[in-house]
Design a protein around this nucleic acid. Structure first.
Lengths: 214, 214
DNA sequence: ATGTAAACTTACAGACGTTATCTTATTCGG
DNA sequence: CCGAATAAGATAACGTCTGTAAGTTTACAT
């Protein structure tokens, strides 16, 4: 077996393993698509380290998972915000934001699942006893990107787009379609889907958010 | 402890435990919302029976889960079909079908998750080795209800509803919204959602499937 | 040389799916 | 009415996984 016992890190740089652990956990979560299925021991194997070594860098399994989630969620929001930058008008920006949403999910289906299709972090740990639910950690995460969507839509309405509904209702409508198309693609990858963009574009334009002027 | 060792079933009626096991597994799946998290031992505890007793009635864990899934999926399709029965015209039937979809999900969120938000049966068992994927079991399940939706929409178009797209595209669009709104409600139950019906009705009418005539 | 950071070894206590074997209550043949 | 067959379960156990705690080794920096 590969018994070379891992090149030890020099003094100040114990941080390096922390980074490699996050990297390993990230890769595994991308494959598993579910934080509950991630095991400390699998992360350790992946990083070429024994399981207890992880506890020098993370209090417990939940901390490790939350660290990864925070990273990925930040990258998700950054990616969507950057996509809007190149836009000419608010409706174009909204379109780009939606397409970026789909692109992120296509590139990182596992991470998408972990971020948006599982309940508050580690329901299995709640069942284990001890803590009284500690909800309120990750709901905020989904909320951030939702409010960014509301604002993007409001800018469209301010620019003259006409719709029967207000921005927050439209945001729910759009998010619903985006999430739905993504989740179905992930769950049934072998069905002959039309391109995801066609679906979401159809709903977005039918809702009156296609172009600014009348 | 409750050491009364369970009233034994008479000769011909060993089937009774089978029923109770299905019942217990069904209840647990409703709570867990994930077939992978269901444990044989939990089913046994719930039914007041020792774990190996299950193997007299089901070949293995997968068979038990599949039996439950088949039952629930049948009920789902029946529920949607019955909802259409009371309709006056094709568009009303479509509306009722959509509302029934939402109602089923609201009444049985856990079962909805198991039926429509997890990949082919037991991905964890595939990883375990032995079998070469055996896909093709449950995809058919989702397909049945999808084709029923296509037909319901086609009847609307035949009755004079005008839309820019064909029935199968519209079916994907509608299913996307239905699934999206359901999954978001399940994943973030504490957000201040507008009623699910409002969202799906909006998309359905915007798509031109609100009323038959012009 | 020594203190200490970084990682290791060992170990516990519990869960899981599943098999092999044993017990007991019921039913049927006589 | 009684003994044998059998169906419906229970016990015990194996092998594997899991998260994590305690204590130990190694190698670098001073």
């Amino acid at each position: 077996m590969n018994k070379a016992p891992r090149k030890r890190n020099p003094r100040g740089q114990g941080e390096r393993l922390r980074g490699e652990l996050l990297e390993a956990a990230t890769a595994l979560l991308a494959e598993l698509g579910d934080a509950d299925r991630l095991s400390i021991r699998a992360v350790a194997r992946r990083a070429g380290v024994t399981p207890p070594s992880i506890y020098r860098h993370f209090k417990d399994k939940q901390s490790l998972v939350l660290a990864v989630l925070e990273e990925r969620f930040g990258e998700f929001n950054r990616f969507l915000a950057e996509a809007e930058a190149a836009a000419s008008d608010p409706c174009d920006a909204l379109s780009r934001r939606c397409h970026a949403y789909l692109e992120f999910a296509r590139e990182h289906p596992g991470h998408y699942r972990v971020l948006f299709s599982t309940k508050v972090p580690m329901p299995s740990l709640r069942n284990a006893g001890r803590e009284p639910a500690s909800s309120g950690e990750r709901p905020r995460a989904g909320a951030i990107s939702f409010f960014a969507l509301v604002e993007a839509i409001q800018r469209c309405l301010d620019a003259g787009a006409e719709s029967d509904h207000d921005s927050s209702f439209l945001a729910v409508e759009l998010w619903t379609v985006l999430h739905g198309v993504v989740d179905l693609h992930i769950t049934y990858p072998d069905l002959p889907w039309p391109p995801a963009e066609e679906i979401t574009d159809a709903v977005r334009t039918q809702a009156g958010l296609g172009k600014s002027g009348p």
